[in-house]
Write a protein that binds this DNA or RNA. Structure first.
Lengths: 166, 166
DNA sequence: ATGTACTTTCAGGAAATTTTGAAACTATTG
DNA sequence: CAATAGTTTCAAAATTTCCTGAAAGTACAT
């Protein structure tokens, strides 16, 4: 396979992958494009390669920066901004975990906590509280496991984790 | 908080949670409803509680059954079908991992494999192949870690895993 | 302080996803 | 086998999400 074909296939696949996990398809594609780029790209480069508007490029680049997956790079003598992706996969995944944990898992834990105090003695209320508590227990464990995972160092997952769980 | 309020809040939250992870909001809500139900519910029960059409209820119930998160239950003397949810959270998560690994992670691995044979000696092709290989390495590790996780028994995650990674 | 080169914002339009509901289908009953 | 009770399918409608592009904003250079 040659480069243009391969590149296109990667952009499509990474976009579809992101999309199926609730990440905007274009955001994932910009991320893909920057990950495989040998140097920093400008907004115009990205707009051209992905055939998207300036507004779209800008909004998704900001989001990627928020997630810690992309960095702004200023070139001496150039007024425009360039962008580079984080290329260490462990850092990429770690940042994604941090963000999604904060935005999705933690709010859910808070809700589960409130719900475990629902009153009632009928079977429906009892089963409700029982199940909420089961979900909360599991979610808390997942939450602290992710905390531990995120605190571990770069090489830990790739090296040690595999052996430990064998 | 009383039961109707709590129930509603749970259905909304679980729906939003699923939605942010790329799962159809209604599918997540049906799942939530069945998880907290003390007995099996019929399609009509679900349609009424969630105010959704028969077609919608039916399609999402089939999907939940495919995922191994809901089971059909036939009551003696009743012609209609009833549905119960898997209530063991470890089994729920395990089944979700199995499905998403198969439908999303594995196809991605296959693509990465094809892409690592892209030809070229220019910096762009070299960086492309280098990065694809880095992503593939990481993804393969994640894939086998999930395999191991899924083979582990019900109580393992909740009990042992936490201590091991400390 | 005016011009230039960019970045940001966001209302409205486009596209993708989800939902509906009615017709077709299936299985059971009398 | 006709009627009944339920399930499934899917084209069209409704909704949600995403994208565009032009106007406003920012900052640097002259």
């Amino acid at each position: 396979m040659n480069l243009p074909e391969g590149k296109d296939k990667f952009l499509q696949s990474w976009g579809a992958f992101g999309s199926s996990w609730g990440v905007n398809r274009t955001m994932a594609q910009i991320h893909a494009l920057l990950m495989i780029a040998p140097q920093a790209l400008s907004a115009d480069d990205i707009m051209e390669e992905l055939k998207i508007s300036r507004g779209n490029a800008n909004m998704n680049l900001r989001a990627l920066i928020d997630w810690g997956l992309v960095f702004k790079e200023l070139k001496a003598g150039e007024r425009k901004e360039f962008f580079v992706a984080e290329k260490d996969m462990w850092k990429v995944v770690k940042n994604i975990i941090i963000q999604r944990k904060k935005k999705e898992l933690e709010p859910m834990l808070k809700v589960l906590d409130e719900l475990s105090s629902v009153e009632g003695t009928d079977p429906e209320a009892e089963e409700f509280v029982r199940m909420i508590k089961e979900i909360k227990l599991f979610s808390s464990k997942a939450d602290s496991t992710l905390d531990t995972l995120v605190k571990a160092d770069s090489n830990w997952f790739v090296g040690t984790f595999m052996k430990m769980i064998k």
